[in-house]
Amino acid sequence: MIQIRNLQKSYGKMQALKGLTMDIEKGTVFGFVGPNGAGKSTTMSILATLLAPTSGKAYVGGYEVTSHPKEVRKLIGYMPDFFGVYDNLTAEEYLDFYGANYDIPAAERKQIIPQLLDLVNLSHKRDAYVDSLSRGMKQRLGLARSLVHNPEVLILDEPASGLDPRARIELREILKELRDMGKTIIISSHILPELAEMCDVIGVIEEGNLVAFGRVDEIYAKMQEQRVLRIRLTGQLEEAMTRLREMPVITSVTREGSWVVAGFAGNDEQQVELLRELTTAGYPVAAFNEAVGDLEDIFLEITKGVGS
């Protein structure tokens, strides 16, 4: 559905994108992860036909974004990270205005708008002025606006930023519904666990480079090549640490109170062997577990050192 080929964008001497290349298949929920200024919004703006790349190509539904912006705009629904609304319009009028901008006939708009308001749980605010809506409600209204022409692709730039936890949960539920409707969704966020729950594929971008790309479980598996073991001992901590350092499968050893934290580069059998060795040697092991890395850890691990 979306192809990006060697995409570059420069603002003067600053290179925001340095040859980004990736493919997003139809019906995929793609999470675009990266710190502020990494190039997420630039990529999304290019896909939304709001920005011309310095070089490279981007295609949406087979249409190149710079040469066929009109065709691309029909396929996409775009929600920027910060967007304004017309305060003197009601929620219904707001959607009606954008529906008219997409040349949807008035009779059809009358049918679509209640459905959209229902989808984003704003039916009760139909006649309320946009000005009177909370930030979360405005965000949901913005999402309904991006769906008014029933686009195949949704480009959502940091849709959860600035929302309270409840509003985030509501937004997540709506996005799950959209995923079930078969929309291709590109969503950027730095709230990584949220993306892990929702996305099929994630791409990590750092300083204009794509540093990781793949299915969420694949990236987890890749990260687990380097496991972290946490061992609690009731005594002989220093001796146990010395013993661990001598083992070839241990890459690092640190102490956190009564816990020893060890980097482990081995498989499950080697892990079993390590535990047996410690207990046979008489070290008082009270707990032995593998630290589960979350998406935050993955992100930090992947992006460490990039740009340094």
Partner: peptide, 13 residues
């Protein structure tokens, strides 16, 4: 300034 232009520019208008 109201941040509505970018949205308008992505519509069919």
């Amino acid at each position: 300034e109201r941040q509505t232009l970018s949205i308008l520019l992505t519509t069919n208008i």
